[in-house]
């Protein structure tokens, strides 16, 4: 079992519905977010390209945040999801410093918080909140170890990229391009 998210940048319109859905589902404090949308403009007029991406924790295979955590509060489940146990976290900030995606933040209550791939919804057989609400259905979620899963098939048939692969983290959020 290896959970991964695949996001189709050609279908994303940058509505930020995923952001709001996450904030609502996970009670994210006001002013904070576990996912966000970036707009990347490249080229010069008239040949300009626009790429929209919904970004979040990449649940890296080689997670630097898990490696750096001095207490083991940051840990990785067998299915690849990286989680933080709030009452083991001392709020030292090492994991925040170690994340090339700046996907973590200090919760106003002190501990470090981040995207969980909506672990609590997966246990009930539901999709992550961001994936479930996406109005253009540009987000896919599933098991990479299963050759026949939607995400595996998309990655086989489409061109894709990951963010900052040079950081060596083996991120598990893929962007179709």
């Amino acid at each position: 079992m290896r959970y991964a998210m695949v996001i189709d940048t050609l279908k994303c319109v940058g509505c930020s519905d995923c952001v709001v859905a996450c904030q609502t589902e996970n009670d994210v404090p006001i002013g904070y977010c576990r996912d966000w949308v970036t707009e990347n403009v490249s080229g010069s007029y008239p040949s300009i390209e626009l790429e929209l991406k919904s970004e979040r924790c990449n649940h890296c295979e080689n997670a630097p945040c898990v490696r750096c955590c001095p207490t083991g509060a940051s840990h990785q489940l067998n299915n690849g999801i990286v989680l933080v146990t709030a009452d083991e976290c001392i709020g030292c900030g090492a994991c925040i410093e170690s994340c090339p995606y700046d996907a973590r933040y200090q919760h106003p209550d002190g501990y470090v918080d981040k995207c969980t791939f909506c672990h609590h919804r997966l246990e009930k057989g539901q999709l992550p909140a961001c994936v479930a609400v996406c109005p253009t259905k540009c987000m896919y979620f599933g098991d990479l170890d299963n050759q026949n899963s939607e995400v595996s098939k998309l990655l086989k048939n489409r061109k894709w990229k990951t963010l900052a692969p040079e950081a060596g983290t083996k991120p598990k959020v893929y962007y179709l391009i």
Partner: peptide, 23 residues
């Protein structure tokens, strides 16, 4: 030209616009 913006208005204390977790 290459320009990247966070359009969903992310502005988390001590993280944006640049990291300042360790004081």
């Amino acid at each position: 030209m290459q320009e990247e913006l966070i359009t969903s208005g992310r502005n988390i204390p001590n993280i944006d616009p640049f990291l300042d977790i360790w004081h």
